[in-house]
Amino acid sequence: MSRPMGRLARFFDSDVWWSFRTSPTAVASALVALVCIGGAVLAPWLAPHNVLDLASVDLMDAFKPPFTEPGWLLGSDDQGRDVLSAVMFGGRTSLLVGICAVLFSTIVGVTLGLTAGYLGGTVDALLMRMADVQLTFPAFLVALLVDGIARAALPQEVHERIALAVVVFAIGISTWPAIARTVRGSTLVERNKEYVLAARVIGLTNLRIMATHVLPNVLGPVLVIATLNLGLAIITEATLSFLGVGVPPTQPSLGTLVRIGNDFLMSGEWWIAVFPGSALVAMVLSVNLLGDWLRDALNPRLR
């Protein structure tokens, strides 16, 4: 390799790309994930009906069974909304909340983990004690409690306006300790390496050293955790919405759709709940498979 390569070419030449190409599971789940993400992101343009626009919904169209009419591929629900379109728009909300929650928890986790590991001492002890306290509880319960407390503490009209942000915050805050612990562990190793000492000798500030020198070297494992957290965040959001304490009903997510459909399960209209549920499982499963593959691909011990 005498010729210098561009970033893209270097990526296509890397071990990671090779391991991706040769793993059928990874390729298949990437395809499924792409379909899910594409359908969700492009919902306003691709969906056959605009389900968020109440004016376009007609009660006369209610309870159409699936696979009978071409415009209503997956049938319609009790309000006459097209299930396929609802699933696409619902996936959009689920994905949006999931990604924002993961970004939030990753930023909080990395910042706190880096600070704890680099500064050590009292700051470290305090932050890790906080993580310990939170880790006493399962993440799902923390998200539920934060969401429940916000619901009780905020006035109703305020809560309705920022409900989506509350859910993102609740889910994000529930997963920061795992990330912070990982980052702290790798920071403790990096802190004593020579390049950090050198940076300190030439008089760089702690902030600068942490952000530009240590940070890039501790991000590897975070990528894997973040991917696996995405699946978890989507499930948590769906579960909260299923319980009726998640996203507001004006912006239904896949979990909300399953909850609506659940009421019609006993009377035989199974498609209203089953299709959103399947879309949810497909999305989460593909993300989890990709995360699993990524963990193995980035772990040199397993190669």
Binding site: G231, T239, V284
Partner: peptide, 20 residues
């Protein structure tokens, strides 16, 4: 792996659909 990715309420719903 499917079990890990299956939200608990979806599983409950499927079981109700089939067995109940």
């Amino acid at each position: 792996l499917v079990g890990v990715s299956l939200p608990i309420f979806v599983l409950g719903m499927l079981l109700i659909l089939v067995f109940a």
